[in-house]
Every structure is written in structure tokens, then in C-alpha cells.
Nucleic acid binder design. Sequence first.
DNA 1: CATGAATGAGGCTTCATTCAT
DNA 2: TATGAATGAAGCCTCATTCAT
Lengths: 217, 217, 217, 217
Amino acid sequence: MQDAAPAPADAPPEAGLRDRKKEAKRAAIIAAAQAEFIAHGFAEARLARVAARAGVAKGTLYLYFDSKEALFDAVLRGALPLIFAPPEAADPGIPPQTAFRLRLRAAIADMQASGRDKLALIVLSESAQFPGLARIYLETILEPLFGLVRDYARSSGVARLEPLTRYPQLLLAPMLAATMWNRLMTERPPLDLPELLETHLTLVLGPPEGEPAPLTG
Amino acid sequence: MQDAAPAPADAPPEAGLRDRKKEAKRAAIIAAAQAEFIAHGFAEARLARVAARAGVAKGTLYLYFDSKEALFDAVLRGALPLIFAPPEAADPGIPPQTAFRLRLRAAIADMQASGRDKLALIVLSESAQFPGLARIYLETILEPLFGLVRDYARSSGVARLEPLTRYPQLLLAPMLAATMWNRLMTERPPLDLPELLETHLTLVLGPPEGEPAPLTG
Amino acid sequence: MQDAAPAPADAPPEAGLRDRKKEAKRAAIIAAAQAEFIAHGFAEARLARVAARAGVAKGTLYLYFDSKEALFDAVLRGALPLIFAPPEAADPGIPPQTAFRLRLRAAIADMQASGRDKLALIVLSESAQFPGLARIYLETILEPLFGLVRDYARSSGVARLEPLTRYPQLLLAPMLAATMWNRLMTERPPLDLPELLETHLTLVLGPPEGEPAPLTG
Amino acid sequence: MQDAAPAPADAPPEAGLRDRKKEAKRAAIIAAAQAEFIAHGFAEARLARVAARAGVAKGTLYLYFDSKEALFDAVLRGALPLIFAPPEAADPGIPPQTAFRLRLRAAIADMQASGRDKLALIVLSESAQFPGLARIYLETILEPLFGLVRDYARSSGVARLEPLTRYPQLLLAPMLAATMWNRLMTERPPLDLPELLETHLTLVLGPPEGEPAPLTG
DNA sequence: CATGAATGAGGCTTCATTCAT
DNA sequence: TATGAATGAAGCCTCATTCAT
């Protein structure tokens, strides 16, 4: 019911104070919920904790979301648009392989920074209860990434890479696996995702052509 | 309490009928629980269903296991020994790369056949609640597989493969990812794990040397 | 608190526009509430729906009524005066039995037309919570009707009808029962209340004396 | 689910103690629920109170009934069989009108004694939420009573009574109305249902033929 | 050993009522 | 005066766990 976002991010400037506060609260709830879901998964997440973290009463949650599931849905949808932001007009002088690597690198860094990689795990693992969400997730996040890989493999003209057009997963799987690894192995030093990505890309695609050094220290 | 396995598989021959029956019931419970956990995950698993599937009363479960968590633990431990069975004395005439591929292929096929790949997902995803189990899982299943990969990468002498000694995950990640994929995408045709493995190995290691054709139709 | 009607229907003519608007809104709320109570009963009635139907905000309801119960009270009181409207100066030429029948017929038709028969059921059935209201209802609606019956039975001089002076309910009960019946049996053709009344009166009082044919087609 | 009564009243004599106790508890719960529903109606009935009255924990209710609604259903069904007990082989020497009156008298007395008349009111008034139950009630209780009336009206051969074959409600409505009356008018002396019935029957059917004096004081 | 009825804490959700704007 | 977002008590229901038989 209240699920259709009541006010888009780019609301008219004269949007009432009322609406702005509502939107802020909505955002606070989603943020609290995201933290809760990441920390406990869906089944073990407690709406009482979400409400407490968001600084509202339990009942208030239901002014914004119809159910726990709808809240989870909103967290995911809130996360989605950010994941695969516009391509940012690739610099023309850059060689395609470099551009490709930059794109992937940015996507991975973004997911990690926002904690949405953890959300992905939750969707993937508790998907039995959310077939709908799972599909959304795949279509909205994974498919575009796969498309990126496919396009590159196809346009590169390298025969060795042909399998990637059929199984783009092969290039991305380590990111997923590493995310899991880091979630699990809290006792060991976490895997460095960017470095792992780089290593994997080099292993599969070959060493990078002269490209700008990564910014990440 | 009852967690120490009351009777190892190789019980003394004079073990009474009593013990054998007890052991059989214990096994039945574990089997039922495994099916339940695979079907629903930990949080959504219902002990009532486990008892029903095992053909015992709910209370009986507690004669064998202290809690739901202990039962999950037992399921995992029950699955562990099978996963990484003895190397089956590699045929000496076979070239090392071929032997390596055969080993991996067998391990993957075994996990898939037994449904234990699904269990892995559960551990990985609900690990927030089971840090202990997660570590067991990693040490007992993943580490040996990683060792296999490391050994091969090191002994192969191929410089390109050096990263695999640092990140053996890179070679195995697609199996995990594909398992997830298949769990999620029940609407699409499932990925063929053996084929995916083969493709990945070829992509990373190069085409297989003359080796016996896979037995799998 | 606000229960003392803020402005009687016959307010002084110089009553400000303000008051008139207030009164209109009050009436709108009562009308909406009546519809809601008839449709759902007291317990299942939702003030949110009442507010929506009345075109006001939920909080506004509390500017006019102290509580859900007070609103119900107001609905009932609002309905009462209409139910037993002035006798409309019985035509002198008409024989008493005919006049009596006309009166009853009018009262029944009025209740049915206004939907207040349904309200009666609600009072009667949920009276456990509203002993006060129940009494009002009886005194304001039923007693006058009973009086009518008693008067007739007494003045008719027919010995057979003497019991009606003690139990005037006997003559009116079928109307109540039929209202219930119609509320329940939505699947079957509804009972025709006027006809049922006529039949009952004939059964108990005997056939009508030459009277004007009923206007109802 | 558990709704089909797990053990009929005439269980085999060797029925285990377990079953007998279960059945007793089931009966206790139904009795407690009946009291609660009669006292508060369906919507305001509290399962916590039912459990307390029955001397069980709240959760226990759900071992016997799937939901509040199912419990209500069971209360009703539990009441049904008693309501219209076997005709008890009418004494052949008794004139038909007398037999008819006896039957009605017994049915009314039975309903009143068991408190099931109050239940009827609840069904009738809260039927909006329970169309299914309402139909059961009508078919199981009212229709048989109507049949009784119709049969009598038809077989009596009295022309005046012909309307009763079309509207058997007319003969029974006062009982319903009086039940309501008594529920409402807790401050006034309650109507004497048997006497009211007698009066009504006399009013409509004429004075009773020489019959055994009613047993009720 | 086995049973399965019983428990009760705790989860999600609803909604009459309040109050800052 | 009017709004509608916010509250929080309270309801129904679930299910891991216990215990009398």
C-alpha cells in the first residue's frame, strides 16, 4: 500500500516540511532495517530492533511498510539503483580492457562500501522464501553485470574468452565467494576484494594494459 | 551432552542389537533433518517436520540431540566425512593435470549428488548464528580443497598459475556461485556444474591433456 | 465532553456560517459512522474508514466525539428521533384497526428504508458492551411501539388479543427476526418485510377490514 | 486440521487414558470458550481468558483448534447435536397439536438451559464475518424447526394456519426476540420463555386441547 | 527408551487515541 | 480548527523445549 515511494528523491523544492520529514524518517527506517537484516538475516531480524535503531515506535514501521517482508523488499530496492549507476561516460582515450576493468572495479567497490554485498548474500541464501525478490535481484544486479562481461568477451575478439559469453558467472563468482568468505571468517584477515578481483582478471584475461594505477591504496 | 557420537560407524561387532537400532534411529533423524534443513534453511526448519520425516515423536529428538542447533551440527558433521573421501590411490600412469581434474570433478559430483552443496549454502548464509560451525566447515571441507589446488598450482611449475597458490578460492568459487544460482533460478534451466567446472578449468588452466573421456553421459 | 450537541437542528437563524459548517461536518461524520457500523458492526468498524468516508482526517473525529463509543452513541441518538416520528394526525374517518396497521406499516418501512433496522441488530447483539445504549434504544424505540400495540389490543375489545397487552413483543417479533434473517441469508431471496408484517397481522388479528389498498406495488 | 473431532463420544471402551484425558480437555476448552463467547461475543472474546478458564496455557488451545474462528466453530458444532435431539418417539395417544407443542416446548427449554440461545444471537449478529457458520446454523437448527412448524400447519388442516407453511418464522420469531430481550434487559425481570411460547401458540393456534399440564412450574 | 501433550516466551501486526504542526 | 504522523498496548499465533505417562 504505502509501498510506492511516497516522494521521489527529486521532489519539487517547495515540497512541504511534512513530506521532507516523512521521507527522512522513511530513509532512517530503511537504514535501520538494512543494518538489522545484514546483521541477522531476514528470519532472525527483529522489527523491535529496527524500530529502536530508527528511533520510532514499532507501530510506526507499519505507516511506511506493510509487513516485514515489504520492508525487506524496500531495503533491497533502496539498494538496487545505486548498484549499477550510469556508466559515467567512459573516457574515450582508454583502451577497452582497461575501461572494462574500471567498471568492474567500481561496481565491486561500491557494493562493498555500501554493505550491499551482505544483502546479496541474504537474498541468495533466504531466497526460498522470496522467489520474487530473488528474481528482481538477479535481473537488476546480476544480469547487467553479466551483460558487461559478455559484451567485453565478445568484443575483445580473443578466442580463449569465448566461454565467458556463455558463462559470465565465471568472471564474477570469486567476488561472491569472497564476500561469503569474509562474512564467515571474521577471525582471519579478510580477503581484499579489489585485489582479488584484479588477480582473477589477470589470471583469466591476462595482465592489464598500461592503465592508470588503481586509486585504492 | 549426547553430542559425542554414541556409536561410531565401526562399532565393535558384538555391539548389541539395541545399539544398532539406536544408531539406525539416530541416522534416520539426521537424514530427516538434513532434508529439512536443505529444504528450508535453519531458521525456517521445523523440528515437527523432522520428527515426522524420521518417523519418531518430537520428544524423541531430544533423546539424541540437545537442541535444534546441535542437530544442525550433527547434520553437518555427518556430511563432512563423505565430502572429502580418501584420494583413491591416484593411478600412477595418469598425468598430474588430469589427475587433478579428476579429483575435483569427483569432489564436485559427490557434493552435488549428496545434496551437501545446499548445506554449504546454509552454513555460509546463516553463519552469523553459527560461527563455530562455519569454522568447522571451512577447515574440514574448504581447506583440503584449497590444499589440493595449491599443491597443483605449485607443482605444475606454470608461472601464470602462481596466484592460485595465494587465492585457491579463484578456482573453486564458480562451483559455489553456480550452486547458489541453481538454488535461486528454479525457473531457468539449471547450470550444469560438471560442465561449468570443465569450462572454468580450461579457461584458467588451459585445455586438458589427452585424458580419459569423462564417464558422465 | 463534546457530547452535548454543539448546535441543535433548530439553531437560531443568526447562527454564524461557522456553526453551520461545523454542524454539517458533524452530520457528515455521523452519517459515515452509521454506514460503517451498519456494514461492519461495532467491533469491526474502523475509525479510519469513518474518517475517510466523511472526508476528514482521523484526528478530526476527536474534535467532535470523545471516543469510538461516543460516536456510536451519537449515531444511535441521531437515528432515534427519526424512527418514531409524530403520528401524523390519524385521519378521522379510518377504522382503528386500519389506522393501527398503517402506523405499523409506516414504522417498519421507515426503519428499513433508513437502514436503521440494521443498527438495531447491532445494538441488540453487541449490547454486552453497551448496556446504557441498549436501554436508550429500548425506551426510545421499542417502548413506543409496544405502547401502540398495547393501546390497540386494549381498545379493540377483542378478548383473544388480551395477551398482547402483556406481551406486545409477540406482534413485533417477526419484524426483528426477519431483519436478522435478511442480514444472514444473503444467498437466499430476502423476506419481504411489509408482506410478512401483513401476513402476521392477519394471522393474529384477523383479515383487514376494508382499507385503502397498500401503495407499495 | 485437528478440527475433525479426534474421538467421538462413543469411543471404544478400551480407549486409552491418554485419549480420554485429551477428550476431556477438549471439552473443557469448548466449555470455557462457549462461556467466553456468550459473555463477550466473538470479536471481544479473548483467547487468554478462554485458556485461563479452561486451566490451560494459551498455546494449548492451538493443539485442539487451528484458530479463534475454528474454536468458535467447534463451540457451535458442539452445541448443534444437542439442540435438535431425536424426537423421542411421540406417545401415540397424544393429539397432534399437543405433541407439536410438546416438541417446541422441549426445544426451547433445551436451548435456554444450555445457554445455546445466547450463542444463536452471536451467530446471528456477527454473521457478517462468518457466512459459513451462519449457513450451518440455519440449516442445522432453524430449518428443522421450520420443518416442524410447516408439517404441523399443513397437517392440521386449519385454513387460518396456511401462512405458516410459507412463513414458519412467524411462529418462532418471538423466541428469538425474547432471547434478545432478556440479554438486553438485565435490569428488568426476564421474560419467561416457556410462558411466552405458550401465549404465542395460543394466540396463533388457539387454546391447547386437553393436554398434560406443563411440567415447568 | 519413547511419546506427544503441554508450555510460555516472544514475534508480527492492528488500531483507537494523542499531539505537534 | 484541522491534520495525519506517531504511539504503544494488546491481540493472535508459533514453535523449541519440557515432562508426565
